[in-house]
Structures are given as C-alpha cells and as structure tokens.
Computed example of a mutant assay.
Amino acid sequence: MGAVTCLMVTVVGLNAIAAAAGLALSAVAIWVAVDGYKLYPISGVSGKDDIFAGAWIAIFTGFAFFLTCIFGIFAALKRSRALMLVYLIIMFIIFLFESASAITSATNRDYLVGNSNLVKKQMLQYYADSSTQGQQITMTWNNVMTQVQCCGADGPTDWIQYNSTYRQLFGAASLWPLGCCKRQSSNFEVVDPIGCKAGVTSSMFTQGCFQYIESVLSRYTWAVSWYGFSVLMLVFFTLVIAMIYYTQLP
C-alpha cells in the first residue's frame, strides 16, 4: 500500500471519528440550550449568558462538523485536490466558530461563579420585583430553594444582612421567602410557616444555594467548552493529516 493510500485511509478514518464527535457535540449543546435545570434567568439577567449563546453556536458547529467530515471522506476517496481544498477551507472556518464558542462559555462561567456576590446581588435586586426579569428570577429562586432545600445564595442571612426588594416589600413581617421553609413530603405544604418566618432553624433550610448553582453552571460549561475543546483537538489533528494528504495529491 502506497503512502498516499495510507494517508487517504487515515483521513477517512479520522473524519469518520470527527463526524461522530460533531454529532455528540451537538447533542450535549442541545442539552445545555434546553436548560433542564432552569437556571438561564440567573445568567440572562446579568447580560452574561454566553454559556447558552455558546451552546447554540456549538449546536451549529457540531452538525457542521458532521456534514463537512462526510464531505471530507468523499473528497479523500475521490483523491481530488479541488474537493480537498474546499473541505479544508470549510473545516477551518467551522473550527474558528467552535473555538469562539468554547472560549466564551469558559470565560462566562468564571464570571458567574468566581464568587457568590454577583448571584447574590441579582437575587436581592430582582426577587419579588414586579418586572418581567423579577418574575423570572423569583420563579427560578423559588424552584431552586424548594427543590434543593436551600435558602439564599450563601444562606438565610443574605435576606437580612443586605437591603433587598423582598425586604422593602415585606419588612419584618417575613424575614425570608417561604421557599426557605421546610415542607411536608406528603402534600408539599410548609411545615411551620410562622416559625420559619420567625427564624426557627428547625423549620427552615439553613444551607445556601450558590454551591448548587455553581455546580450546574460548571456542568453546562464542561459540556460546551471542555468537550468542545476535545473535539477541536481531534479536528485540528484531522486537518493536519488532511493538509499533508492534500499536498501529496497530483
């Protein structure tokens, strides 16, 4: 078997693997874009929703990788310099798009979860606010606090140590939202609403929610960025071998 034929087989094999990886990238990006944990409002209200923007780009680039790799297999089997050149150009353009997606998602994650202050500030500002953003944030935090059994970003004291929209509306009548209160497993009713509002620790959640939010956003980032980077490394190696094959074609 000649050297050119060996290169052709290698290019075909690498493109087949890269095509499968591209489909997998689209799948994990769709999982992020769907936002099964329903935390987009926390990211969106800050205007720093690049994790989700990166996911939409990754959906496109993953499927584009798949289609272009199929074309690359065809071009390699045809041993056509013209088709291989078209393939290389398209793959390089997609490579740049996916690089931008992975980088922006990673940097946005660092911005959101570097510490709890940003998430806490948004919570205090928008929770119980009547605006559209306020309604979204209120619903998001209610879901997180009741499902994860937590209260506030760092803990219940967030609601009383800092000025907030909720505190302005309810004052001393309710120190924190009912989402901070423990509920019965049978009917999901608050166990002791009066005690919870008064700060009885046995009737409320004392752990903060930031650790959960951080872990979810980190999972989203891993899906879009770190898996995206691994696909990029595979595509880069494929491009190098494909360029060598291109130079050997008559």
Rank of each mutant, 00 (worst) to 15 (best):
A172P: 06
A106G: 10
N163K: 08
T140M: 10
Q184C: 04
P156F: 01
N115C: 09
G152P: 03
Y126N: 07
S174A: 11
L124P: 00
T165I: 06
Q184R: 14
T107K: 14
P177E: 03
Q184P: 02
Q135R: 15
C180K: 03
A173P: 07
T146C: 05
K121F: 13
Y166I: 02
N187V: 02
W141T: 00
S185F: 11
R167Q: 12
L178H: 14
W141P: 06
K121I: 08
I160G: 00
Y111L: 10
D129R: 11
T165M: 09
K120G: 01
A153I: 07
S185D: 10
C150Q: 02
D110T: 13
Y111S: 09
A172Y: 04
M139T: 15
S185I: 06
K182S: 05
Y166M: 02
N187M: 06
A106Y: 15
Y111W: 14
Y126F: 01
G171K: 07
T138C: 00
Q125C: 10
N142L: 03
M123H: 01
V113Q: 13
P156H: 03
V148M: 08
G134Q: 06
Q184H: 13
D129K: 11
F188N: 12
S131N: 12
Y166Q: 08
T132A: 11
L169Q: 13
